[in-house]
Amino acid sequence: MRGRLTAGTMLVALLTNLALAGCGAELPAAVDGELTDDWAKVAQVKGYEPVVGACYGATPKDTGGRADSVVDCKPTHYAETVHVGRFTFDHKPGPKERAAAFRDCDKQANAYIGRPWGDGKFFLTLTVPTDPAWDGGARWYRCDVTESTTVFGESRWTTRIGTLKDGISADALLRCGKAVQKSGRIQDILNVPCTMAHNTEYVGTFRAGDLVAYPKSERQWDVLHRECRKLVGTYLGSQSAAGRFGLISSPNGLRSWSEGDRSVRCLIWFGGKTTKKSAKGSKGRGLPGY
């Protein structure tokens, strides 16, 4: 804003001098009469550009950048930028463009962390320029990862320490859990050590295709269950054993799905029975219901 005011004041001053000069004699030969050709070029004001690896003291939201609270990653922080991409068009991104950007975020976040971000209690957020920033020429998008108290129930953002480049801390990884049920429905899954009694275990995450509908009917849920069943088999080390157990398919919700987050977390589920060991590589032997 100050730059525009300064330029405006300069222009008024020059026009005043021109009016005064017009009242005098002809211009000297050394004066060409062109006012602007000798002006120094004014440097273009550089807008905010996000940086990969930056951490923030607040949760992600669409931004112009100036008010973002960038902090050191070593102390506590809420979010970390794992990738920065660019839109290649001038119209503001709609649902399809945002979904495509999220797909890029998904891939790049996994590469940045060194494993699927869904393996932890994390959410991936697409952060884009605010309307004023977009109108000012900003075309970047940010991919931010935040940690939460849970990814299966009512979650709350939580601070973390250190960069995700160093890996996911053990307490943030999804492993074994206790399913909390109410009226026959799973409300949440509490992380517990695998040596404690548990009735679920996280086996992996997959990304559903862009044309896959958010599950509302049994048939639509079956599309996700089939993919989760494959991950259960891989985790057990036996695809044939996978069919002996229940499973949980957990997308991040309708709103996240519509914005391009097609991640689905998969868990093996023992129903009302529990075990005190990990199912990984067991081929199902020794597990409840085998």
Rank of each mutant, 00 (worst) to 15 (best):
R66G: 14
A58Q: 15
T76G: 10
D62G: 04
G94K: 11
H77L: 09
G65T: 04
V82H: 03
V70N: 00
H91L: 13
H77M: 12
S69K: 14
V84I: 04
F89D: 12
C73R: 06
K96A: 14
G85M: 01
F87H: 04
D68S: 01
G64C: 10
H91E: 15
S69T: 12
V71N: 07
F87M: 07
H77W: 02
Y78R: 01
T81P: 03
K92P: 06
D68M: 05
V70C: 01
R86W: 05
Y78L: 08
Y78S: 12
A58W: 00
P60E: 01
Y56K: 07
E80G: 07
T76E: 11
G65Q: 02
P95M: 14
Y78K: 05
G85F: 08
T59C: 07
H83F: 15
T63G: 01
T63Y: 00
V71F: 04
D62L: 07
P60Q: 07
D72Q: 10
A67H: 11
P75V: 15
T59R: 04
E80R: 02
F89E: 09
K61Q: 11
T88H: 06
K74E: 12
R66H: 11
T63P: 01
K92W: 11
K92R: 15
T76V: 06
G64A: 13
D62A: 12
A67F: 08
P60F: 00
D90F: 03
H91D: 15
K96E: 15
V84C: 06
F89A: 14
E97A: 07
E80F: 09
S69I: 08
D62E: 06
H91A: 15
D68R: 05
A67I: 02
A67S: 14
A79L: 06
P60L: 03
K96M: 13
K92M: 14
Y56E: 01
K96N: 10
T63M: 08
P60T: 04
K61E: 12
P60A: 08
A79E: 02
C73D: 10
Y78A: 10
H83S: 04
P95W: 13
T81I: 04
V82S: 02
G65W: 03
T76P: 02
G85C: 00
K96P: 09
